[in-house]
């Protein structure tokens, strides 16, 4: 939300036409405008995101839902991101275990706790945030590209002319599917990166598999925080990306800009929510 698309918005407001320029804007006004445009853009985007979120929640509990479309979206999300997430999470598991192995080597040299310490961290932190960032990348951009191209080809106008709310018709199915599938994919991510870490620990540091496979340090609080984060991300990604799509304008460029706005805005939303939920989680469950 920070300055994304600001180049776009200032581009459109800056293109003053000929005529009607009786008062030539001064240099200072120009400078103020160039600072103001991104700020205005950020504020109005944040406002739109919250409005879209409110509508999405409202229509999730009110009115008929297109359940077949929800199922279709679930399938789309899973189908699009399964391979991608597997690859990324496997690398993440290998990287994290390799790095912490080096750290352990420097201090204690005792590798036996590696898996036990790694798992809660994965559940509470790495798997939700990296998984969600990847879903934002893969699914969020897809949502923005789809809805954005519907906007620039006036399909969304046609929906509205037929008394159909774009948020209800287009975003709500993606919202419901997004919440559910993000949860599924993050659980899957945790599994993949734990297994990849287990393999890495075995290969590089000779940690036996059954030593690594140790769930004793996982607290209920870790699960709760992990799931809460995941649900928040699952709600944020479709809403933020859908809003980016609905805000598209112009021709084929418009879709490109909407897509880039979606990936950046939803990644930022994920990072901010992670911080908020993580901080609240720490205050509610300090240490066991």
């Amino acid at each position: 939300m920070t300055g994304v698309g600001a180049d776009r918005s200032s581009g459109s407001t800056g293109s003053t036409g000929e005529g009607e320029r009786a008062d030539r804007p001064s240099r200072i006004a120009d400078i103020l405008a160039s600072v103001g445009a991104p700020v205005f853009y950020v504020l109005s985007t944040v406002g739109d995101v919250f409005k879209t979120f409110g509508l999405a929640v409202y229509y999730t509990f009110r009115g008929k839902k297109r359940w077949d479309e929800v199922i279709n979206q679930c399938y789309q999300i899973g189908n699009r991101s399964l391979v991608f997430i597997t690859v990324v999470m496997a690398f993440l598991g290998m990287i994290l275990i390799f790095q912490s192995g080096l750290q352990v080597k420097r201090i204690t040299g005792d590798f036996s706790q590696m898996g036990a310490v790694y798992l809660p961290l994965l559940i509470r932190q790495f798997s939700p945030i990296i998984g969600a960032l990847m879903i934002a990348t893969r699914v969020g951009t897809g949502i923005a590209a789809e809805i954005g191209s519907m906007v620039v080809t006036e399909q969304v106008d046609a929906l509205r002319m037929n008394a159909t709310q774009p948020v209800k018709y287009l975003i709500v199915p993606r919202f419901i599917a997004g919440i559910f599938m993000t949860l599924v994919l993050v659980v899957y991510s945790t599994l993949v990166s734990f297994l990849a870490g287990m393999l890495t620990a075995h290969v590089y540091f000779e940690v036996p598999y059954d030593t690594f496979w140790d769930i004793s340090l996982v607290r209920w609080a870790d699960l709760l925080i992990g799931v809460t984060k995941t649900l928040c991300f699952g709600m944020a990604i479709p809403v933020v990306s859908g809003q980016a799509g609905l805000a598209a304008f112009g021709g084929s460029e418009g879709v490109g800009w909407a897509t880039t706005a979606a990936v950046v805005n939803s990644s930022l939303a994920v990072i901010m929510l992670d911080f908020v939920v993580g901080g609240v989680g720490f205050m509610v469950f300090p240490t066991n």
Binding site: V88, F91, R138, T141, G148, S149, G256, A258, T260
Partner: peptide
């Protein structure tokens, strides 16, 4: 329009894989 959107999507996905792989 659809092509541009798809290209952006592919770009970020491939970049992410590239980043984790290189790392």
């Amino acid at each position: 329009a659809v092509g541009v959107g798809r290209a952006v999507n592919n770009c970020v996905v491939a970049s992410a894989i590239g980043i984790f792989f290189l790392d």
